[in-house]
C-alpha cells in the first residue's frame, strides 16, 4: 500500500504527463439503505471505482429533479440515485415517490439532450456492499464509455478548440 505524495494538488490527476479523462459522478444515497450499503462495502474492503462523490439524504424521496439537473449543469458526467428496495423503505413508501421523481427527471434530462445512460436509479440495501461496489463499477464504466457530458466544461473546451481550428 503506497502512501499518496504530499505534492498532490487540486489539479487533475495525470498519468504519463498526458491528461487521462475520468468521469465525475454524483451519487445520491438514502441514509438507511444505500449509504449504509456503501459503508458495508467499506467494512468488507470491497475495492471499487473512485470517481464518484456521495451526497447523503434521509430518504430517496428527498431527491428532487433540481438536484440532479444542478449536478448536470455543473458538469457531472453521470448521476446515480439510490435508495432502499421496495418494501424496505424506512419511511414506508418514500422510494416509490423517488421513482416518480426520477421518471420526471429522466424526461427532463432527455429533453436537455443529455444521454439517458448518464442517469440511473438503483436500489441497494444496507447489506449489499458487493452490489454497491458492482453498481459503481458498472455505472462508472458506462459513463466512461459515453465520454464527457455535453454540458461539461471538458466537452465545451473541446468544442472551443475545434472551433478555433475550424475558424
Amino acid at each position: 500500500m503506497t502512501k499518496a505524495k504530499t505534492t498532490i494538488t487540486d489539479q487533475p490527476v495525470t498519468a504519463t504527463g498526458t491528461e487521462t479523462w475520468q468521469p465525475r459522478i454524483l451519487v445520491f444515497a438514502c441514509n438507511w439503505c444505500s449509504y449504509a450499503g456503501a459503508d458495508t462495502a467499506g467494512v468488507g474492503r470491497m475495492e471499487h471505482e473512485p470517481h464518484f462523490r456521495m451526497i447523503r439524504v434521509m430518504c430517496s424521496g428527498r431527491i428532487q429533479p433540481a438536484f440532479v439537473l444542478k449536478a448536470f449543469e455543473k458538469g457531472a458526467d453521470g448521476v446515480l440515485v439510490s435508495g432502499c428496495h421496495f418494501g424496505d423503505c424506512h419511511y414506508i413508501f418514500g422510494n416509490e415517490r423517488a421513482v416518480e421523481q426520477f421518471d420526471k427527471t429522466m424526461n427532463m434530462v432527455k429533453l436537455l439532450g443529455i444521454e439517458p445512460g448518464r442517469l440511473r436509479l438503483e436500489w441497494i440495501s444496507a447489506a449489499e456492499g458487493i452490489r454497491f461496489a458492482e453498481i459503481i463499477n458498472e455505472f462508472t464504466e458506462q459513463v466512461r464509455q459515453l465520454g464527457p457530458s455535453p454540458l461539461s466544461s471538458k466537452r465545451l473546451d473541446d468544442l472551443r478548440i475545434e472551433e478555433e481550428i475550424d475558424g
Partner: peptide, 23 residues
Amino acid sequence: NIRDQCSWVHATQPQEAQQKART
C-alpha cells in the same frame, strides 16, 4: 466519511482516493 467510503475502498488507488477525500 473518508474511511468507510474512501480509504477502505480505494486503497489501491491512493491518488484518486486523496482527490476524493479532499473533495
